[in-house]
Simulated assay, not measured.
Amino acid sequence: MTPAKLVKTVVAALEEIKAHDIEVLDVTKITTLFDRMIIASGDSTRHTKAIANNVVEKVKAGGGMVYGVEGEQAGEWVLVDLGDMLVHIMQATVRAHYNLEELWAEAKKKKISKATAGAGESKDLLKPLVAKSSTVKPRKASIKSVSPVRKKSPNPGGAS
């Protein structure tokens, strides 16, 4: 399944079960772990579980692979791993608390609706994230010489 078709399939599955505040983030220049992140909100634990289940069913029906689903028991935040795409389905309070959109602020956000779900994707979606970190010198392992352990005789007096 092509990335564009996968995005369309996931967004359609989200909208079918009335997920709201759907955002698609292109994170190809930020991380090599995945290319897209889709974040959507549900109204209750039952709603988020139903949304995630619909995403899984639609992706499998469309010929895509689902690598894993996490958070189904609690239902406050369900993560669907589609390989090159992660789908976060969260309740509004959890979404506001973790604020993934701000964590991935380098990615250009794109509000999705039925009208824009099929639109072409922009080529210049991101500026690369450059982390300036200080160079850390590896510590040398210190090897201490250890004397061999001497076995004590069971009878310290030497008498048998």
Rank of each mutant, 00 (worst) to 15 (best):
L103M: 14
L126H: 09
P138I: 04
H47I: 05
A61Q: 14
K49R: 15
M90I: 14
K110M: 14
K49L: 09
Y98Q: 12
K132F: 10
V136G: 05
L125I: 11
E15T: 02
N53G: 13
A107Q: 00
E23R: 15
V27L: 14
P138V: 05
L126Q: 12
E106H: 04
A117N: 13
L100I: 05
I112N: 01
H20G: 06
G68A: 07
G83C: 05
Q91Y: 11
A13E: 00
R95W: 01
I143L: 14
K58I: 01
R36F: 08
E101S: 00
K144M: 14
V11C: 15
M65I: 09
V130H: 03
G62I: 05
L82R: 04
Y67S: 07
D84N: 01
N53K: 14
K127R: 13
Q91M: 15
E101K: 02
D35F: 06
G120H: 13
D43K: 11
T31P: 04
L100D: 03
Y67I: 03
D81N: 10
V69H: 09
K60H: 05
L86N: 02
V80Y: 00
T116K: 13
K18R: 10
S133P: 06
K137Q: 08
S142H: 14
N54D: 11
G63E: 07
K140T: 12
E16H: 06
M85N: 08
M65K: 13
V56P: 03
R36V: 01
R46Q: 08
I89S: 13
T116N: 15
R139M: 08
V94P: 02
T116W: 13
D21S: 12
I30Q: 02
A131S: 09
I38F: 00
M65A: 10
A40R: 04
I112D: 00
D43I: 07
A131M: 08
L129W: 01
G42W: 06
I38L: 10
H88V: 12
K111E: 06
L79K: 07
G75H: 00
S142W: 10
K127V: 12
V146M: 13
R139V: 09
A61P: 10
E23Y: 14
M90N: 10
G63D: 04
V59G: 01
S133M: 01
D43F: 08
V80W: 02
I30H: 01
A13Q: 03
Y67C: 06
W104A: 06
G68H: 07
S142L: 14
N54T: 11
L25K: 00
S41T: 15
W104I: 05
I17S: 03
S122C: 06
K58G: 05
H97C: 11
G71V: 13
A117I: 15
L82C: 07
A12M: 10
T28V: 08
Y67P: 03
E76V: 12
T31G: 05
S133A: 09
E76M: 11
E57Y: 12
H47F: 02
A107T: 01
T28E: 04
A96C: 11
K132V: 08
A96L: 10
R46T: 13
W104D: 02
R36P: 00
A141R: 15
D26Y: 06
T48G: 08
G120I: 14
K144W: 13
K29H: 12
